[in-house]
Design a protein around this nucleic acid. Structure first.
Lengths: 109, 109
DNA sequence: CTAACGTACAACCACATGGTTGTAGATGAG
DNA sequence: CTCATCTACAACCATGTGGTTGTACGTTAG
């Protein structure tokens, strides 16, 4: 694995807040400064800053310093990893069903 | 939408715990009773029961009573919904990049 | 019937979370 | 240089979280 284990917890926790998911969707479309993001939500700058920090800790976004601004970008690899993890769980039910069908077809009655 | 809004928070929060993700993976492969699940983890029955309740509230599992046991099954639709939501965010970066390329190709220099 | 099992739920605790305000350091504009 | 802007971070508070133990109830086995 590329990233350390236990980070999955942080990734999904980061995704468990609507404001953070909105921030994520926006910065994935186009990078934005922290203060530009802060203007979008009915909460203090510090609160938005904390949300960005949670996303950054989870590895879902990166920050790029540009002048006195900090531009937030989406990090595709981590998000891709989360999707892959869920897909693995999701696919189990189909593998399991396929196995059952197979066993039925193998029956010699 | 099939499910009420604000439930995305609950879904991702439910996924943000390693024990719950493990439970989910197991019951997606094959239904298990709550007590059978409880035997798998180094914590009290009540704790596992709470984890199952969180997954159930999020709509990620369902319970089916069988005798005195409660069989826990994975709920594919909700998980699929979570995956779809992440895919939407993920795809934005590609749409945005495709748009940039398009604009470059349209330049008349 | 009785005893054991599977489940549910309340009460409690330590700790994390999401929000606030306030202070302080870099950086760019004039 | 000076001032406004952007960012960072600490302190604080109410609430939620993950864990515990204890109690209670329905159901099956003997």
């Amino acid at each position: 694995m590329v990233v350390d284990e236990g980070s999955e917890d942080r990734v999904f926790h980061a995704l468990s807040d609507a404001t953070r998911r909105d921030i994520l969707a926006r910065v994935f479309r186009d990078g934005m400064s922290v203060s530009a993001l802060a203007r979008l939500y009915p909460m203090s700058f510090a609160a938005v800053q904390k949300h960005v920090a949670v996303l950054e800790q989870a590895g879902l976004v990166t920050k790029e310093r540009r002048g006195r601004e900090q531009i937030v970008h989406g990090a595709p690899d981590t998000l891709r990893g989360a999707i892959d993890g869920l897909m693995d769980v999701y696919e189990r039910i189909w593998r399991q069903r396929a196995g059952r069908i197979e066993r039925i077809l193998e029956e010699e009655s």
